[in-house]
């Protein structure tokens, strides 16, 4: 059994149960999130394990993983900072604020900080244009950014990391819902 199956056995079954019998390929996005959480990023082994579980061609799973922006194909920092500088945010100063974010995190867009704590990425619209400048950190919204707010958050993240190094998973699904009856 691979790392994914030993880490998230129940979550895998619950994810597949969200879809009708024989349609397990529908669970590929959920499983890729879980694989990302288990492996840290989508290594070839992670892709192979997902394709084995879902009876999918590894090439297809690799294609799916490459198609979407939230799947990480190389190692990232413990905090993945996705900063929006798309048009609506940029109209409210997001381009000007970007160097402030880069300086405080200690990495430029597309890079990971030397301590391995942060990866900064510039991303397209995150559907929170009324709170620019804004970003998501491991998919949690951080809105209405100011230098002071950012200082406080960075200090908090550093303190957390010092006490308890962040787990590798930047993001991944927790246990999928048990809300609906499994199909079949």
């Amino acid at each position: 059994m691979g790392t994914l199956q030993t880490t998230f056995p129940a979550e895998i079954q619950a994810a597949i149960a969200n879809y009708p019998p024989g349609r397990q390929a529908s669970a590929v996005l959920r499983l890729l999130y879980l694989a990302q959480a288990a492996y840290g990023h989508l290594t070839p082994e992670a892709i192979d394990e997902v394709s084995g579980i879902l009876h999918m061609d590894p090439t297809q799973v690799r294609g799916v993983a490459g198609f979407y922006t939230l799947f990480l194909e190389h190692p990232h920092g413990g905090y993945v900072v996705q900063y929006c500088n798309d048009l609506p945010c940029a109209l409210r100063g997001a381009d000007d604020f970007l160097p402030v974010v880069a300086e405080k995190l200690g990495c430029r867009p597309g890079e990971t900080s030397a301590d391995g704590l942060f990866t900064l990425e510039c991303v397209m619209c995150l559907a929170a244009c009324d709170h620019a400048p804004m970003m998501q950190v491991n998919l949690e919204y951080v809105l209405d950014l100011t230098p002071e707010k950012l200082d406080a958050l960075v200090a908090e993240w550093r303190a957390k990391a010092a006490a308890n190094p962040p787990r590798r998973p930047p993001f991944g699904f927790g246990p999928p819902s048990e809300m609906a009856a499994p199909h079949g």
């Binding site: 969200n18 996005l29 959920r30 979407y68 922006t69 939230l70 799947f71 819902s177 009856a181």
Partner: peptide, 20 residues
């Protein structure tokens, strides 16, 4: 399942995209 004693069933599932 079988809402309000009828034979009508409605299950709701949340399903993720991944940025596209």
């Amino acid at each position: 399942q079988r809402l309000h004693g009828t034979d009508y069933t409605c299950e709701v599932y949340v399903t993720p995209g991944a940025g596209a």
